[in-house]
């Protein structure tokens, strides 16, 4: 009897804690969501929670922010550009990193340790320091202002983290599968394609999400390598051009947050199913 009580109690505690954390995390976001529907003059004079008290008072809400954002952005083109930049900039570095991580984890060769060390060191290189030398070369090779240029740049910037995290995952795979596959006469590429790749799905999914978000939210790299003309400008660049030189009209950002966040959330939900339990366990057994 007491054991059951204990169980109920601990379940209750668990739910309370989880809901508390979720609310804690959500409060700032809810605040900004409400703010995005409020007129600028109200925002500056009273807290956003004051609308909750009389939620049915329609006059305190406005769609102005969303209307302006959607009409000024040239939203279709900006979204298309963002996808054109983000999708290859996510796939290319992950593909390259997978090969590198596999080699680092399961092959023995000269300078392996040094290469691994350098990969980690490169994590700390501040991107801002790379802009000038890279842009200089991009200029000469006509890559400045083109999509392939920025794909390559994002690939370079995203690689160290991808290699590092993939290495750690791939090196943790049980040695036995590699041994038995080798005995069966499978080539290294075959092992890579048939064993490493499928087993790494969860970590690849996390890295896709991460790299996607990183590129999707990037402003400076796009401004530097692509410029801000509407033909190529991604959504972040267009959003930043909503704000005046003195920071006026920042309330438009509150609406822009919720417009630009949508694709990232879709990616997250879409890849969610790869986080389920047992992918790894199941395939090892089989």
């Amino acid at each position: 009897m007491t054991e059951r009580m204990n169980k109920v109690l601990s379940r209750g505690l668990l739910h309370t804690f989880i809901i508390f954390i979720a609310i804690l995390w959500l409060v700032p976001t809810i605040g900004i969501l409400i703010t995005s529907f409020r007129p600028a003059q109200d925002v500056a004079s009273s807290g956003w929670w004051t609308v909750v008290g009389n939620i049915f008072n329609q006059t305190q809400f406005t769609l102005r922010n969303y209307r302006i954002v959607l009409s000024r952005l040239g939203i279709g083109r900006a979204f298309l550009n963002s996808f054109t930049i983000t999708i290859p900039s996510t796939i290319i570095p992950l593909a390259i990193a997978l090969f590198a991580a596999y080699a680092l984890a399961w092959m023995r060769f000269f300078a392996r340790t040094y290469i691994f060390m350098i990969m980690i060191a490169l994590l700390v290189v501040p991107l801002q320091m790379t802009f000038i030398p890279i842009l200089r070369i991009f200029n000469r090779s006509n890559l400045a202002g083109t999509f392939p240029g920025i794909w390559l740049a994002h690939s370079g910037y995203g690689l160290p983290l991808a290699v590092y995290m993939l290495y750690n995952f791939v090196s943790g795979l049980p040695k036995e599968i590699f041994d038995s596959a080798s005995i069966d006469g499978a080539s290294t590429f075959h092992i890579f394609l048939r064993i490493v790749l499928p087993l790494s799905v969860p970590i690849i999914a996390s890295l896709i999400i991460f790299q996607f978000l990183w590129v999707w939210n990037d402003l400076l790299v796009a401004l530097i390598y692509l410029g801000g003309t509407p033909d190529v400008a991604p959504i972040t660049v267009q959003i930043s051009s909503l704000v005046g030189s003195y920071g006026q009209d920042w309330e438009l950002l509150t609406a822009a947050v919720f417009i630009s966040i949508v694709p990232s959330l879709l990616i997250f939900f879409g890849l969610q199913r790869y986080f389920v339990r047992g992918i790894l366990a199941g395939s090892i057994k089989g």
């Binding site: 080699a103 290469i115 350098i118 490169l122 290189v125 320091m129 070369i137 910037y157 080798s182 290294t188």
Partner: peptide
């Protein structure tokens, strides 16, 4: 795992190239 001497480098080549250009070279600079 048994591999030819060149195999690891084939796998690493793209990463080394991209990293060399986008991060190592600017760091030296």
């Amino acid at each position: 795992m048994q591999t030819k001497k060149t195999t690891p480098w084939l796998y690493l080549a793209p990463a080394l190239l991209v990293l060399g250009f986008f991060l190592v070279y600017p760091s030296i600079h």
